Amino acid sequence: MKKHNHDKLKQEFQGFYRILILTCVVVALFSVAMIYFMADPTMSTFKSTVPDPDIVSVPAEEDDFDKIEDGIHVRTGFVEAPGMMETVQNCTNCHSAKLVMQNRMNKERWKTTIKWMQETQNLWDLGKNEDIIIDYLVTNYPPKKKGRREVLTDVDWYELKD
Rank of each mutant, 00 (worst) to 15 (best):
K2V: 13
K3V: 11
H4F: 10
N5C: 05
H6R: 13
D7V: 09
D7C: 07
K8Y: 04
L9R: 15
L9H: 09
L9K: 14
L9Y: 07
K10I: 07
Q11E: 14
E12Q: 15
Y17R: 13
R18E: 11
I19V: 13
I19A: 14
I19T: 12
L20T: 13
L20P: 05
L22K: 11
V25W: 02
V27Y: 09
F30I: 08
V32D: 03
A33R: 07
M34W: 08
I35H: 02
A39E: 08
A39L: 08
D40A: 10
P41E: 12
S44K: 13
K47D: 11
S48A: 13
P53H: 11
P53Q: 08
D54S: 15
I55V: 15
I55M: 12
I55T: 15
V56D: 02
S57P: 05
S57V: 15
A60T: 12
E61Y: 13
E62W: 10
F65K: 03
D66E: 03
K67I: 01
K67P: 00
I68L: 01
I68R: 05
D70T: 01
G71K: 11
I72W: 09
H73V: 00
R75I: 07
R75Y: 10
F78W: 05
F78D: 03
E80I: 01
E80K: 02
E80S: 10
A81H: 13
G83N: 08
M84G: 08
M85I: 06
M85G: 00
M85W: 15
E86P: 00
V88M: 02
Q89D: 14
Q89A: 05
N90A: 07
C91A: 11
T92G: 10
T92S: 07
N93D: 08
H95P: 10
H95V: 09
H95L: 04
H95K: 11
S96G: 14
A97Y: 08
A97P: 08
A97C: 05
L99K: 09
M101G: 02
M105E: 01
M105G: 00
K107V: 03
E108T: 09
R109P: 00
W110N: 04
K111Q: 13
T112Q: 12
T112K: 12
K115N: 04
Q118C: 00
Q118T: 02
E119Y: 01
Q121V: 01
N122W: 03
L123S: 13
W124M: 07
L126W: 09
G127T: 01
N129R: 05
N129H: 12
E130M: 04
D131A: 06
D131S: 08
D131W: 00
D131G: 00
I132V: 15
I133N: 06
Y136N: 07
Y136Q: 09
L137P: 05
L137H: 02
T139P: 04
P143E: 13
P143D: 06
K146T: 13
R148C: 02
L152Y: 07
T153A: 06
D156C: 01
Y158K: 11
E159K: 12
E159P: 04
L160D: 11
K161I: 14
